[in-house]
Amino acid sequence: MQYLLMIYSAEDAGPQPGTDEFMQMIGEYQKFTEQTQNDGVFIGGEALDSITTATTVKVRNGNQEITDGPFAETKEALGGYYLLDCSDLDQAIAYAAKIPTAAYGRIEIRPVMNFD
């Protein structure tokens, strides 16, 4: 089964860019990605740029409306994701717990819908 692991955190939480802790965290992320690849569960995964770069688009009555930033004011923002192929939810939970951001943010796990 495929699971999307969405990585949420407040942008001012956790190690900040430019610090040693941040570099250490990048290393941990690399190690985690390698582990999922070696385990054969990795399908995809990326980090996202800051929430200030976000653009929201919606179409109402044929009119395209574009706004700067995310629509809802939320403290925690989506900062990245992994798409993994796991045997069951327990395996997905075990991987989610190893994502470095889990230590101060949170990981939302969603199964990819199966249309078979």
């Binding site: 045997s87 069951d88 939810l89 327990d90 199964p111 819908m113 199966n114």
Partner: peptide, 14 residues
């Protein structure tokens, strides 16, 4: 069913 909650006895650490 849809989130794949397994039907088993949890692993020793859990």
């Amino acid at each position: 069913k849809s989130s794949g909650i397994p039907f088993n006895i949890p692993a020793a650490e859990d």
